[in-house]
Amino acid sequence: MNSISFQKATASLKAAHLQDPNNELEGSKLVPAEWLYTQRLLDCLRQVYPDASEALTIAAYCQHLYRWEIKRTEYPEGRIGYYQWRNYLGDYQAGKAAAILQASGYSDDFVSEVVDILKKLNIPRLDDAQKLEDVVCLVFLEHYMQDFMQGKPAAQLVQIVQKTWNKMSDHGHHVALQLNLPESTHRIVIRALG
Rank of each mutant, 00 (worst) to 15 (best):
Q130V: 07
K96H: 08
C62D: 01
I117S: 01
A33Y: 00
N180M: 10
S107P: 02
R67K: 15
A99Q: 08
P124Q: 07
H143D: 00
K152S: 02
S107H: 06
A103L: 09
A33M: 09
Y82M: 04
Y37R: 11
F6L: 11
S53V: 04
L181A: 02
L65P: 06
R72M: 06
W165C: 03
V114Y: 00
W35I: 01
L36F: 14
D128I: 12
M145A: 15
H171K: 08
E77H: 14
L30Q: 15
Y75L: 02
Y88A: 13
S107I: 04
H186W: 04
L42V: 12
R72E: 13
H143E: 02
P76F: 03
L41D: 00
Y83E: 03
K14H: 10
Y92S: 08
K8Y: 01
N122G: 07
R125S: 05
L41C: 01
I123E: 15
I100W: 02
T57A: 08
A99I: 06
Q19G: 06
S184T: 14
H143S: 03
Q47R: 14
Q150L: 10
T10D: 12
I190W: 10
H143P: 00
K163P: 00
K14D: 14
N87S: 12
I100Q: 02
P76V: 08
P76N: 13
I70C: 10
V135Q: 01
A94H: 09
V48A: 08
N87Y: 09
P21V: 00
T185A: 09
G194C: 09
S104H: 04
G78R: 06
E113R: 15
L121N: 13
Q47F: 14
H173C: 00
Q146N: 15
Y106S: 01
P182C: 02
H171Y: 06
L121D: 13
E142V: 12
Q19C: 14
D109K: 11
A94E: 12
G172Q: 08
A55R: 05
E142G: 04
D127T: 14
L30S: 14
T73M: 09
A59L: 05
L13C: 07
V48N: 12
I58S: 05
I160L: 09
V189R: 00
Q146W: 14
K152R: 15
A99F: 13
D147M: 08
A59C: 05
L126D: 11
A15S: 14
C62L: 00
I123W: 07
L118V: 01
H64V: 05
Y49N: 03
H143C: 01
V136K: 02
V136E: 00
V158A: 05
P124M: 04
N2Q: 07
L45H: 06
L118K: 11
K71S: 05
G27L: 03
K120T: 02
L118Y: 02
I190E: 12
K96L: 14
L89E: 14
N87W: 01
G27M: 08
A155G: 05
N122M: 05
W68M: 06
A94Y: 04
Q162I: 00
T57I: 11
